[in-house]
Design a protein around this nucleic acid. Structure first.
Lengths: 231, 231
DNA sequence: CCCCTCCTGACAGTTTCCGTCAGGAGGGTT
DNA sequence: AACCCTCCTGACGGAAACTGTCAGGAGGGG
């Protein structure tokens, strides 16, 4: 591999691999020695890349010279930061972390002046109602929605009674203080909302309902509208 | 000039000089021969840059996913969308619009598959408590925070009594259902929070307190910590 | 103490790059 | 047709950069 190619590839790897990226990992991916990686990082830094690197930690690309600078107004930057803060209060740990990473990626494309504006944002989100974090099975449910795979749920209703449900999971809904799974319930043959904190267990069935998720959501939306309900 | 530097510089020149850019111009700007430029262009192309070049015309850098601009995991995309939804519920119209635009800009840089993932996101934010939108003067207050300019406020307290305040505005705080301005109040010689919906009028004084905003925020934060209060 | 990782210099051998020169292509204008 | 503009590519000899190995060091955390 030509060195030129490798330098661009390193930038790409630092953008896409989970942070932080170690020199050992980069060396493995590009099939050169670690010493070559150190040299490459130095070259990229000399060329304007802002790469944070701490002993014992790894590398984080903070400003990327290969990308066209993206331009956001100051208020757009503030809006993104508000969004990050809100996502961090979502009660969903995985989403909170993902928001942080996504925003860091966006910030890395910004010129220095705008990065400074981001650092000195004037909006601040403050929430007392830290929602219960129903960490259990949330990732599994999310994945099932993405992959349009049926789930078997053990669900506890308000009275504490537990039933087994086979559902087609459509959407994770962030309502006021609870997370809700909107799904098509095969037991009831109708749409049902399941509070995620009342899901005792969730198991994947291996059965796919692809590609029906989007059309079912459309149906649900239209039914809610027909009932004069907010969507 | 190191070749690495030169390659990034060429990308920058093609982005900023009037199109089309000739090899002769690039050679002059970077102080190398035209032959070197031809080689550099070949290297950039090998690295994925889409550079259009026609004999007798010059070069045009096609700025698009050829140099994979940004990559987000699926959950990162979902997190950004959650953030957008939350920002749209912030009660601040300007922020809501800015969030939409910022996100559109981010999405536009994504490869097609990821744009589709964004379109079929599984998370949905739903809020009953549409907050009061105190649109009046909010933009002015925001700008004053950014520019570190003193404000004169007509402020109504809970009993409806109106006072005049001269304040150094620091932060717009998104609490549960209200927007709050955190400021240093010169009348009280202390930090005060002002509910934005109770601000009857706000006027700029023309007096700057730059560059004190950041250090004052730090002070406030430290005081809150010393009092065992959440920051 | 150990572990993890980033960091830098030196070395000899290997590879790449450089400008110059030559020849060609494509498109447009007169 | 000739001429102009520009992109394009190969070859050459000399110069510059790169390579992996080895050695030594730093910082942070447990």
């Amino acid at each position: 591999m030509a060195r030129t190619d490798r330098l661009f590839r390193l930038l790409h790897l630092m953008r896409t691999l989970p942070r932080p990226v170690t020199a050992a990992r980069l060396a493995q991916e590009t099939e050169v020695s670690e010493r070559a990686i150190y040299r490459d990082i130095a070259a990229l830094r000399a060329a304007g890349a802002r790469i944070d690197g701490e002993a014992g930690y790894g590398y984080v690309l903070e400003e990327d010279p290969a990308l066209p600078p993206q331009s956001f107004t100051r208020i757009e930057i503030e809006a993104l930061l508000i969004g990050l803060s809100e996502a961090q209060n979502s009660g969903d740990r995985e989403i909170a972390e993902a928001a942080q990473q996504a925003l860091a990626k966006v910030i890395a494309t910004l010129p220095e002046r705008q990065q400074r504006e981001a650092a000195h944002a004037v909006h601040y989100v403050f929430r007392y109602d830290r929602r219960e974090v129903p960490a259990r099975d949330l990732a599994l449910i999310r994945k099932a929605c993405w992959e349009e795979e049926t789930l078997r749920l053990s669900y506890r209703d308000e009275a504490g009674k537990e039933t087994e449900r086979v559902v087609l999971p459509l959407t994770i809904l962030y309502a006021e203080k609870v997370l809700v799974l909107l799904a098509w319930c095969q037991l009831r043959q109708d749409w049902r909302s399941f509070r995620i904190d009342r899901i005792a267990a969730a198991r994947r069935t291996g059965e796919s309902f692809r590609p029906r998720r989007v059309s079912m959501l459309r149906e649900y939306t239209e039914r809610m509208k027909a009932r004069g309900r907010p969507v």
